[in-house]
Structure formats: structure tokens, C-alpha cells
């Protein structure tokens, strides 16, 4: 690259950086590049001045509008009304509102059908090797409502969206003071229990937190009566 190519490349870079120097977002190195170039380049100085004036004109304070605060307060009031109405709806219906949620529900249904088909196929394949009743007489199958082994302390069962990242799951559990004690089951059900026996976690608030998270598809309390005694 000869000297004139070099000068042109610096000119082009400086010209491109001017707006970010004007709005104060250029890095120190970028700012120095522009400042040094402006000393020798009349075109860029003119452009820099123009952009400074434009920036100034766009940031001139607008005339204070009479009643602006009242307008903001009224608008916020309307938003609270909308939020309250939304939150008053049952969880399932609330989540089902909107085209996205409808799509999500359709996806869940398709997934459920898929899981059912897969389970049926696996059952058929494994059937000859399975003993439906164990030697001691205890059934080896497990229903969705039955508590999985190790879930003696579970207070909540939940199904999570596949899009929920590990980090989000950890944050959600920490926020709700819950831990996973079993799962996921074949049907994708996790059993959740309070983080520590010393920390009394009310089930309803923890449930509310889980349900308010879009990454949780289903969260229901474990029926205390159905829970095996520890």
C-alpha cells in the first residue's frame, strides 16, 4: 500500500467514525484517530462541524408540554389496568392469549402426541422383556401422578420448555428456593422440593413464580395426601 492509499484509508475511517465521536460513543483510540485527521483534512472538519450542529439541533430541549406529567400518569394507569386484567385471567388462558401462545399450545400438543407415539413404540418393543408385575408383587410401571422414587419431599411437579437454558433454570430454582429432587420422568416431569428443610417455602408463592416464567409449561402442587410419607 503506497502513501496515498494509506492516507485515503485513514480518511475513510475517520469519516466513518465522526458520528460516534460526536455522540461520545467512540473509543479513545477512535477519537484520537479522528482528532489527528481533522487537523489536516478540511472536508472532514466541515463534516464534523455539520454533524455537531445536527446533533445539537436534535437534542435541543423540546418545549415543555403542559400536562406532560399528567399524560404519563394517565398512560401508566391504563397500563396497570391492562396488566391487572391480564393477571386476573387463569394462567392457562392467559398464556393461551395471542397468536404466539396459540402456536406454542399447538406445538405442545404435537409434542404430546409424539411422546405418546414414541412411548407406545418403546412399550411394544420392550414388552416381551418386561415383567409387568415384579416378583415381590410391586408394579414396575409408574403413572404420571405417582411420585417417582426420591421424590418423597417433592411439593411441586413441573414440565419445562425445551428452550429453557440451564442458566435460566438455575436462576428460576434459586429465585423460588426450590431444587430438583427427581426427574425428568419419561413424560418430562420434574419433581421439585424446597431447597432446605430449614427454609420453609410456601408452595403457592413458589408455584406462582414458576407459572409466571414462560419457560415453565406446567406447574402443579403435589397432592399432600398422595405424597408418600418420608
Amino acid at each position: 500500500m503506497n502513501q496515498s492509499d494509506d492516507a485515503f484509508s485513514i480518511h475513510r475511517r475517520a469519516w466513518e467514525l465522526i458520528p460516534w465521536v460526536v455522540n461520545g460513543r467512540a473509543s479513545g483510540e477512535e477519537r484520537r484517530t479522528v482528532e489527528q485527521h481533522l487537523v489536516d483534512c478540511g472536508d472532514c472538519r466541515e463534516e464534523f462541524d455539520f454533524q455537531m450542529r445536527l446533533h445539537g439541533a436534535m437534542n435541543r430541549p423540546a418545549q415543555p408540554e403542559a400536562g406532560a406529567d399528567a399524560a404519563a400518569a394517565a398512560s401508566l394507569q391504563r397500563l396497570w389496568q391492562r396488566i391487572d386484567e391480564e393477571e386476573a385471567l387463569p394462567v392457562v388462558r392467559r398464556r393461551a392469549s395471542g397468536s404466539f401462545a396459540r402456536g406454542l399450545l399447538a406445538a405442545v400438543l404435537i409434542e404430546a402426541v409424539g411422546i405418546a407415539a414414541l412411548s407406545a413404540a418403546l412399550w411394544t418393543r420392550d414388552a416381551p422383556r418386561q415383567t409387568v408385575v415384579a416378583a415381590a408383587g410391586a408394579p414396575v410401571y409408574q403413572t404420571l401422578s405417582a411420585a417417582p422414587e426420591g421424590a418423597a419431599h417433592a411439593t411441586i411437579r413441573a414440565v419445562l420448555a425445551p428452550t429453557l437454558t440451564l442458566g435460566e433454570l438455575q436462576a428460576l430454582l434459586a429465585q423460588s428456593h426450590l431444587q430438583i429432587v427427581a426427574g425428568p420422568s419419561d413424560a418430562g416431569v420434574y419433581s421439585l422440593a424446597p431447597l432446605s428443610v430449614r427454609v420453609a417455602v410456601a408452595t403457592q408463592p413458589a408455584l406462582a413464580q414458576l407459572r409466571s416464567n414462560p419457560g415453565v409449561r406446567f406447574a402443579e402442587p403435589v397432592d399432600a395426601a398422595a405424597r408418600p410419607s418420608p
Partner: peptide, 28 residues
């Protein structure tokens, strides 16, 4: 002045105008 600059901005396509607004008015 505000009016005049505003009119100039309105002649820009939406994406260009928004870019300039975000940079110069919102400081991004």
C-alpha cells in the same frame, strides 16, 4: 430550527432515520 431538522429527518427512510435518532438523540 427543530422543525426544519425534523422535516429533513422525515425525508430519510425509516431505518436511516431511526439509526440517526438512536445515535444522536438516544446516545447509543
Amino acid at each position: 430550527l427543530r422543525d426544519w431538522v425534523g422535516k429533513g429527518l422525515r425525508h430519510l427512510p425509516q431505518e436511516q432515520r431511526t439509526t440517526l435518532e438512536l445515535a444522536y438523540y438516544m446516545g447509543h
